[in-house]
Design a protein around this nucleic acid. Structure first.
Length: 159
DNA sequence: GCCAACGTTGGC
DNA sequence: GCCAACGTTGGC
């Protein structure tokens, strides 16, 4: 029996891959995650249909820029055993893959980024992982209540 | 560009 | 298994 849809936050530097890039492509494989905790979330917990907050990191402003959805469950990350690929890892092989990817699809781009400062100022988001000091995980679980609050804020008129 | 926080690696 | 050195992340 399929379990209930979950919600996630996924970070990307918009100079590398932005919500606008996802909008143009429609969907993408989330390649290049090289952190075990983030990998485990993708490989073990993400399911098709899960909701995703698309977060712009190292940006101005940094924050949630839109929504996406998991469109394909995890499979081994071919970039990890492709020599010359920026994400190549000699320890990963097709027989014994070390890194995994999910595919996500575009849902919507917010009319404005809900900035980190704005997220911090919302008392209803207490406990949101990305607000914790030193939190660097590029794939994080998010409470559905938090997801809804952020999605509503992102759709609201700028200002 | 700085640097604090964190994860990974590898010598012992 | 400890832990120092190193690399990376990401806000500022």
């Amino acid at each position: 029996m399929p379990s209930r849809k979950r919600c996630w936050l996924m970070k990307s530097e918009p100079s590398e891959f932005s919500i606008g890039d996802l909008q143009r492509l429609g969907r993408t494989r989330w390649e290049g995650v090289r952190n075990y905790q983030a990998r485990n979330f993708m490989r073990d917990d993400m399911q098709v249909g899960d909701d995703v907050l698309f977060y712009h990191s190292s940006a101005d402003p940094t924050g949630v820029a839109g929504l996406a959805r998991v469109s394909q469950a995890a499979c081994p990350d071919p970039s990890s055993w492709t020599p010359g690929d920026p994400y190549f890892d000699a320890r990963s092989t097709p027989e014994r893959p070390r890194w995994w990817v999910v595919e996500i699809e575009f849902v919507e781009a917010f009319p404005r980024v809900v900035s980190l400062a704005e997220l911090r100022a919302m008392p209803t988001l207490a406990g949101l992982q990305v607000l914790k000091p030193g939190q660097r995980l590029s794939v994080q679980p998010v409470d559905r209540s938090h997801y809804r609050i952020i999605a509503r804020r992102g759709r609201s008129a700028p200002g």
